[in-house]
């Protein structure tokens, strides 16, 4: 409507508009698309593109795999942790927040992969929505690679209309904070979303000042700070209220006692001197075992280092049939896991 009003798009037809608003792959949780980038693709004489179909199938199966095998398994620990927020220990607090950090990413990017993959099968190109956000070494890079189409939407419809960066640093900082507060409220009408958006806005302001001053930061240290900041902010995003978020953060900060499992005692023999205790059971509140910790470490390394699904489909030579076998096996495996599937997280926003 905004584009039609401003005259940016012309020659609208009822069929074209109806197709745009009802194009099912991205209907529920994005990517958020512009009318002008979609309508040109809805041609009645569109050709079947087999290369796109092959890529689409592969991307769809990766997305399904991410959702049912990775995100839903992390959801178990995250849900337990937030449910028992008041009594979490230090280790449980971190397992809870990291599990949610991975759950949200694999859930939402999995859904996006499925949407883009389905689009490809119909020879429709949907915009990329994620580009390895947890590899980001600063908060600006994070927002350039997390929910990219939302960032674009907020930039076009909030940040630039407010004046963007045209009127000096102080106006730019104000606009950044306002844009992210609105971005927070866009996800839900609650204080936790407002805090989440506001703090991200402040972080972006600090980054802008840092850049303006010409300061540099070691890339690994930058990644560490960014990832932990994002992880901490997801606590507000997930918590049902402010108090629940504070409870989880308190446990992560060690205010509720630091307690590790017996098997970790050998690795940290200095810790008992610091009043840190070991024992069993150690993660009842989240239902975790030592394998949970191993999986969290594996996925931390995975999101920080590995290729993302878009990079993967660009690299793969789809003339080789083995990828058809891999897609088939992944599809069947994922379908078998769908027995206890949860709904996609971003359906809520």
């Amino acid at each position: 409507m905004v584009y039609a009003y401003s005259g940016e798009i012309k020659g609208n037809t009822l069929i074209g508009y109806t197709l745009f608003v009802s194009f099912f792959p991205q209907l529920i949780a994005g990517p958020i698309v512009h009318y002008r980038e979609m309508i040109g693709q809805f041609q009645f004489d569109k050709k079947i593109d087999f290369q796109m179909i092959k890529k689409g199938i592969f991307l769809f199966t990766i997305g399904l795999f991410k959702k049912v095998l990775i995100a839903d398994n992390f959801a178990f620990f995250a849900n337990n942790g937030f449910r028992n927020a008041e009594t979490l220990s230090f280790a449980e607090g971190w397992i809870t927040s990291l599990s949610y950090t991975f759950q949200l990413y694999f859930d939402f990017s999995g859904y996006t992969d499925m949407a883009i993959g389905l689009g490809m099968i119909f020879n429709i190109v949907l915009p990329q929505n994620f580009n390895s956000p947890y590899k980001a070494s600063n908060i600006k890079l994070f927002w350039r690679s997390w929910h990219i189409t939302l960032g674009r939407f907020l930039k076009d419809h909030v940040y630039i209309p407010l004046g963007g960066n045209k009127f000096g640093l102080s106006v730019k900082l104000r606009n950044l904070i306002l844009t992210f507060i609105i971005g927070g409220i866009w996800h839900g009408a609650g204080w936790t979303f407002l805090i989440w958006g506001g703090l991200h806005g402040i972080a972006l302001c600090l980054h802008s000042i840092w850049e303006k001053m010409g300061l540099k930061l070691n890339i690994i240290l930058g990644w560490f700070i960014t990832f932990n900041f994002v992880n901490l902010m997801w606590v507000f995003f997930r918590a049902k209220d402010f108090n629940q978020a504070i409870q989880v953060i308190k446990s992560m900060a060690g205010f509720k006692g630091v307690f590790f499992p017996d098997w970790a005692a050998g690795f940290f023999s200095i810790l008992p001197a610091l009043n840190i205790t070991f024992g069993t059971p150690w993660a009842n509140n989240v239902g975790a075992t030592k394998y949970t910790v191993i999986w969290i470490i594996v996925f931390l390394a995975f999101v920080a280092k590995s290729m993302n699904s878009n990079e993967l489909i660009d690299k793969i030579d789809f003339s080789q049939k083995r990828y058809a076998y891999i897609s088939a096996a992944v599809l069947v495996g994922s379908l078998m896991f769908m027995n206890n599937i949860k709904e996609f997280l971003y359906f809520n926003f």
């Binding site: 199938i57 096996a329 069947v332």
Partner: peptide
């Protein structure tokens, strides 16, 4: 070229159905 593409998609569909059916 067209044949190769169709063969790939057929392989995917048949493999999915075969694996699923055998497991079931």
């Amino acid at each position: 070229m067209m044949k190769t593409h169709i063969s790939y998609i057929k392989t995917f569909l048949l493999t999915s159905l075969t694996i699923g059916f055998i497991i079931f």
